[in-house]
Design a protein around this nucleic acid. Structure first.
Length: 471
DNA sequence: AAAAAAG
């Protein structure tokens, strides 16, 4: 096993890593760091959860030297605010032993603290495009000496939504610089585009291209979803033995909010992250999930990339992602740093073509997904994690029967289904459940929130709109 | 088309 010391990493950085128990390098780090330290431009590609951040971060810190002058010398651009926070923390760790300071620059937060840290002379900036350009435009952020530039999740940063911003940012940094682009996914056309911003880059793939991009330690399960039953099936998965933390992805912000309210009502310890929440609430959710105060995170694709929480055992795609790249990144929230994980995907009837695309692109070679109901016993048994995996038994016994969900024209049909299911469903205290008395108390706040949502203009028109769309 | 990213 190659250690970071073998790669020529400075002693103070080795000490900072060792303090966290990190001594050995992952393959991507082993392959890129020796090239990157002397200034080689790098396109670094490696599977999810295999150490890309330190792969680019260590050379950035080391190349600035032990005592860099005050002022921004390095810029790391990421696609989401939460990833900015996380990469900031990693960079902060690497700089523990030297006089280099790091600042996170992203939106949804007060300007004040960020500007103060810049004026105090921070040398490394980690940020999202909007706020970076905002501050640069106000002359509060000077990028003219940023000779180290990194695009994390580089293919995302170079796609249509971000490209104009990225072009603006590259205009503000020196032409002579060291540029690193990292991602698990690097489609050919994006690599070609990336070369515009780099000089003679080397494209390093830490894995054999024939091997594909899927993680061997992630088990993928796919089911045809029965839409009226999905919440129930997901609740069942959340009761599975051996489950650690779970991330559930939805296609829309509204679906994420609905699901977190629903699961909270059912007694699960769930939080959400999506773009309709305040930044403060987003960060609170993430922190609670990382700390284990919540063990279910419901998210839009804002959390699909980069987010590193080390004991996520399950990823559930409540809605199938649009393409194979998003699938790979979402699934990659589990199975990190050599651990095992399970990715469960529900495919709605109208999304079968998306599954066909992903199945082909990732060479899963799966047959068409089978339909599943909350009553299918095989689903439950399929969802036990292999022996040896650490995990907790989490239960969420059903509380009092709930009131009818919605007073819309779709209610009668849904009610019928629910009522029938409730009767043939196993009792709350079945074999996998612990004592109901140990369960969390009824969450009055959640119920109030749900009622408020239902009453609110947005919620009511939303329900009406969905009903109309079904007709 | 949705989500993300400035306010």
């Amino acid at each position: 096993m190659t250690t970071f010391a073998d790669l020529g990493v400075d002693q103070d950085i080795l000490d900072a890593l060792a303090h966290k128990g990190i001594v050995d390098a992952f393959p991507i780090q082993e392959q890129t760091i020796p090239l990157s330290l002397p200034g080689q431009d790098i396109i670094g590609q490696a599977k999810t959860g295999t150490g890309k951040t330190f792969g680019f971060g260590i050379p950035v810190v080391q190349r600035l030297g032990a005592h860099p002058e005050p002022g921004v010398k390095a810029l790391i651009v990421v696609p989401t605010r939460e990833l900015a926070v996380q990469v900031y923390e990693d960079m902060d760790l690497l700089t523990q032993g030297r006089a280099t300071s790091v600042v996170a620059i992203y939106g949804g937060k007060a300007y004040e603290g960020q500007i103060e840290q810049l004026q105090a002379g921070a040398q490394i900036v980690v940020g999202t495009p909007g706020r970076l350009i905002d501050l640069a435009g106000q002359r509060l952020l000077d990028l003219s000496n940023a000779t180290e530039v990194v695009l994390d999740e580089a293919d995302k940063m170079l796609d249509l939504g971000f490209l104009p911003d990225i072009e603006k940012i590259f205009q503000k940094v020196p032409t002579v610089r060291h540029t690193q682009l990292f991602s698990a996914t690097m489609p050919g056309p994006i690599v070609a585009l990336a070369r515009r911003f780099m000089s003679n880059p080397i494209h390093i793939r830490a894995n054999d291209p024939d091997e594909g991009l899927t993680q061997a330690n992630i088990r993928h399960l796919v089911y045809r979803a029965h839409s009226l039953d999905k919440d129930e099936v997901i609740a069942r998965i959340l009761q599975a033995e051996g489950r650690g933390k779970t991330v559930i992805f939805t296609r829309t912000k509204r679906a994420a909010q609905r699901l977190v309210d629903e699961l909270s009502d059912r007694g699960f310890n769930a939080g959400a992250v999506h773009g309709d929440m305040s930044q403060e609430a987003r960060e609170r959710s993430m922190a609670a999930f990382k700390a284990g105060k919540k063990d279910v995170l419901i998210a839009t694709d804002v959390a699909a990339r980069g987010i590193d929480v080390d004991d996520v055992t399950h990823v559930i795609n409540h809605t199938i992602p649009d393409d194979e790249k998003t699938y790979l990144h979402r699934a990659g929230r589990t199975g990190r740093a050599g651990r095992t994980g399970i990715a469960v995907t529900f495919v709605d009837w109208e999304d079968l073509h998306k599954w066909a695309l992903i199945n082909r692109a990732l060479e899963f070679g799966q047959p068409d997904p089978v339909e599943t109901y909350s009553s299918s016993p095989h689903l439950y048994s399929d969802l036990s994690i292999p022996a040896g995996t650490k995990g907790r038994i989490v239960t969420a016994p059903r509380r009092e029967p709930r009131e009818p969900r919605e007073a819309t024209s779709s209610a009668p049909r849904e009610e019928r289904t629910r009522t029938r299911r409730r009767t043939d469903r196993p009792a709350a205290g079945d074999a996998t459940s612990t004592d109901a008395a140990a369960a969390p108390a009824a969450d009055g706040a959640a119920a109030r929130r749900r009622r408020r949502r239902r009453r609110g203009g947005g919620g009511a028109s939303a329900a009406g709109g969905e009903t109309a769309a079904q007709a």
